[in-house]
Design a protein around this nucleic acid. Structure first.
Lengths: 122, 122
DNA sequence: TCCATAATTCCAGTATGGTCGAAATATTCG
DNA sequence: CGAATATTTCGACCATACTGGAATTATGGA
């Protein structure tokens, strides 16, 4: 990922409303959530939500598909991992020992694979 | 980390100039880089750079210390790992199998601990 | 004290982004 | 086709952010 695309993604996420939307979609997984459902859950106006979804979409962070009358949005996990990789990239050569905590974070996530309860934070 | 702080950090990084500054500081590690040196390397105006450093600082992503006539800036790795953790947090419960690529990213970083050459991308 | 260097702050002008009401488009169903 | 639902687009207003020139503060040395 190049710097320009990464900045665009980060800028899109640098808005509390959009960040909340994105996290909701990440939680939902590949199944995705309909726009109206998002609006209901986050209590946001349809047009404002639409604008924010559009920003996230243009940043490549989410994708959409039509399903009947609804449009389903889902997080683009490839883009997400690409962004996270971009951020970690430089940490290694600069100060490898600093990356250690990141390993812990991912280990926690990996350990969750079937083993943890929702809202677990151990 | 709460949503508001995370959004502030992401917003600060959602600017190509600031993202470049931050990556430069991450590469530099705890030693840090003087403001003037950053300006020279990135060929940016002193006042513009100062404003950007201020944004990053207020977002908690970098710290500064005076050293003689210079002010040395360094990346705050605790904040960085906190931010990355925040982004990964939801991925687990939602779709654990999706976190796998993240493990690969960190494994690469971990493997770098003394073992890889600069600019390695394997 | 006076000067040079390092960095920041102040202050415009300009541009971009966010929000909301209202209207328009797309789809389903009777 | 006509009505209802789901979502987007349009248009305007307001707020915030970015840039760059000039002045200001802080440190170190003669």
């Amino acid at each position: 990922m190049e710097s320009k695309a990464a900045a665009a993604s980060l800028s899109a996420l640098g808005h509390e409303g959009r960040l909340t939307i994105f996290r909701l979609l990440v939680k939902a997984g590949p199944v995705g959530v309909a726009a109206g459902e998002i609006a209901r859950r986050l209590d946001s106006l349809p047009n404002t939500l639409s604008a924010n979804l559009n920003v996230l979409s243009h940043a490549g962070l989410i994708t959409s598909r039509r399903e009947g009358r609804s449009i389903i949005y889902s997080a683009d996990f490839t883009a997400m991992t690409g962004l996270l990789g971009f951020l970690m990239e430089d940490c290694c050569n600069g100060s490898p020992e600093i990356c250690a905590p990141l390993g812990g974070i991912v280990a926690r996530a990996a350990a969750c694979d079937g083993a943890c309860l929702p809202n677990a934070n151990a």
